[in-house]
Each structure stands twice: as structure tokens, then as C-alpha cells.
Simulated scan of single mutants.
Amino acid sequence: MLSCQREPVTDAGPGYDYAPIETGRYCVYDVSEQQYALNATPVQRTYQIKEIIGTPYTDAAGQTTYRLLRYRRPSPATDWQLDSIWAVQRTNTELRRTENGQPFVLVLFPVRDRLQWNGNRYNALGEETYELRNVGQPYRVSDTTFNQTLTVLGQNDSTLVSQTRRLTVFARQVGIVYRERVQLQYCSSTPTCVGTNQIDYGFRQVYRLRQYGTN
């Protein structure tokens, strides 16, 4: 999502246009999440997040980086409130997003099916393999079908006692259209609850694109 100019990237060869960028480009997401705690009623939330690409700056390594302004509101009837400021950077070989102070490599270029890399190469969270899937395939989000997308699959583990899943879908000329994060711990305290998918604690969060454009 980074270039040295403010114009959107449209080069279809390496796949840069799966992560277009220009100052003022925005995406609005419907977000649903569930949080679980031991011996407590699950907490369910729905809200909206608006991400706007801001002005570029030069980081400490001399790379052009764009601010990613993130606004939040509980419903379309309420006003947007600034939630956080992230950052996004795109080089010839990778798309990098800094989220809550942690940099992640979301996409590697040029894109191709089954391409793998360490998404945590620039942070201290430990190695995590990301893999490209379904490059150029359609993907439906709510009532909209995007004809050309790619899917980035991160950790995707499911056992009798836990589930971890991270998945992000990018659409050509749009950017992120769907994102899912799951981190659940199932009951394992007694033999009778193992394998029943009874959740002790964790969270599930899903982003679905609602609207996008350029201010």
C-alpha cells in the first residue's frame, strides 16, 4: 500500500493494485466481535470502522509511509470518533501495515498462489507463516461479489482444545474487503468437556467491507 507518489498503484503485473493507495482513499467496515471469558456471559459487539489513507511521510529507514487514520462509531446514526492512527507502506516486494505499533507483512509481491512468507519478520511476536491463496478468484462479501481477489491465510490451527485463525481478503482496485481473526481456548479441565467446543475464553472478530471510495 505504499508508493513514492500519491497516485493509486494500478500495475496489474506484480499485483500492486490489490493494495491501491492514495491520500483520501477510504474503506468503511461493518465489524462484529464476540469476546469470551471463563464463567461469564459472552460479550457481543457490532460497530463500524472507517480507515482513511492520510498524508505520506518518510520513516526512520528512509521509506515513504502513509498514515492510516482509523475512526470508529457504534452505528451509522452516530458520529465518527478517531480511534487510532496506524501506518501502511508498500515497497516493490511487500505490503506492510503497522497495527497498534506492530508491523506485519500482509502481502508479498509479485503475487502468486501458495506463495509463503513470515508475516512477523519485522516484529517480535515469533514467526508466523502467511500464504497466498485463490489469487484472481471472486469473493463475496455481504451482497457484493468482487471478481478478482486474493486471500492471505495466516495461522490456521484447530485442535480439541483451541482454535486460531487469521484470514484477510484483498480485492483488486479496492484493498481489504474481509478480515477474520479467531483466538479461542476450549474447555479441557475435565474429560467430559474435551472435544465439545465449549469455549472457556478468547475472541472472534470479523470485518466486512460496507463502502469505499476517495474523499
Rank of each mutant, 00 (worst) to 15 (best):
T159I: 07
T64H: 12
R165W: 07
G175P: 01
S32G: 14
A61F: 13
E127Q: 12
Y29H: 10
T10I: 07
L106W: 13
G136N: 06
N147R: 08
S142R: 13
D200W: 03
Q198I: 02
G213V: 11
A37R: 09
Q35H: 11
D157A: 12
E128W: 01
E22T: 12
G195K: 05
Y122P: 00
Y212I: 01
N147D: 10
V105P: 01
E7I: 07
Y16N: 06
A19H: 04
S32A: 15
I52Y: 07
D59R: 11
L2W: 12
G202L: 02
Y201D: 09
T46M: 04
Q185T: 14
G213K: 13
I199E: 07
Q5E: 14
G119R: 08
I199M: 04
D143H: 11
A77C: 01
T168K: 06
I52P: 01
Y130Q: 04
G202E: 00
W80A: 02
I52M: 12
E51S: 14
A40S: 10
F109M: 11
E51I: 06
P42E: 15
P20R: 15
P20T: 07
R208G: 02
Q89L: 15
Q81R: 05
C4W: 07
L38C: 13
L125D: 02
Y139W: 10
L115Q: 13
E180Q: 12
G202F: 02
S142W: 10
F104K: 02
N118Q: 07
S142H: 08
D200Q: 09
R140T: 14
F146W: 09
Y66G: 02
S142D: 10
T190C: 09
S189D: 13
E99V: 12
V88I: 10
F104G: 01
D30T: 06
A61C: 00
T192S: 14
L69K: 05
I199L: 06
L167Y: 05
E51N: 11
G126H: 05
G24V: 03
R121S: 13
A60H: 07
Y130T: 03
F170S: 09
L125S: 13
G126A: 08
D143C: 05
